[in-house]
């Protein structure tokens, strides 16, 4: 494989990662966020396998040692197998992560009826405020100040407070 082809593959992998991260940051639809995550993951996998690519003057061979062949003479033109093994695992884990993200998106859609990130955030803030019994935040830089900490049990609070008879 020529230098030109390897450079083209590098540009493709970096482009996929860039497009994926850009979509991850900039898109507002939850479903498209999952799609961008899958794109970035494919680009990262391609980049990892590309790093492990090696070749000698007569080309590269897959990292499979056949019986009867001399392993030491084969090794210099053999592709590095360790990134390949890692990427093999990463592909399967990536599909698992995708399934988890999709199930969370389905749950959020079932609870709030929308997939738009801004609408979701607004409804969650309203929910938290009504559950905590506080006023809604005035602006982004002044969040709701009276939002209580997680509930402390009565016994622990009495022991911590000075001057209170136990």
């Amino acid at each position: 494989m020529s230098e030109f082809a390897l450079l083209t593959l590098l540009i493709g992998a970096l482009g996929l990662v860039a497009l994926g991260i850009g979509g991850l940051v900039l898109s507002r639809n939850l479903f498209r966020v999952v799609l961008a995550l899958a794109l970035a993951e494919a680009g990262a996998n391609l980049l990892l396998v590309l790093v492990g690519f090696r070749q000698s003057a007569w080309g590269a061979i897959a990292p499979i040692i056949e019986s009867g062949r001399d392993a030491a003479s084969l090794t210099p033109s053999m592709v590095d197998p360790i990134p390949q093994a890692l990427v093999l695992t990463a592909i399967v884990i990536g599909v698992g992560v995708q399934a988890l993200a999709l199930s969370l998106a389905i749950r959020a859609y079932g609870a709030y009826g929308t997939l738009d990130m801004n609408a979701l955030r607004a409804r969650m803030e309203t929910d938290i405020d009504s559950a905590a019994g506080t006023q809604p935040a005035r602006c982004q830089h002044a969040p709701a100040g009276g939002r209580p900490l997680p509930p402390i049990s009565a016994g622990a609070r009495r022991a911590d407070t000075p001057g209170t008879p136990a």
């Binding site: 494989m1 082809a5 999952v34 899958a38 494919a42 897959a62 093999l88 592909i91 599909v95 999709l102």
Partner: peptide, 29 residues
């Protein structure tokens, strides 16, 4: 690309799991 980079096992997994199962998951969702 994985086939071109002499990683046939990774190519098989990417085509079956990444494209097949991932695409199925996305379509069902």
């Amino acid at each position: 690309f994985f086939v071109m980079l002499r990683a046939p096992d990774v190519a098989l997994t990417e085509a079956a799991i990444g494209a097949g199962l991932g695409g199925l998951l996305l379509a069902l969702a």
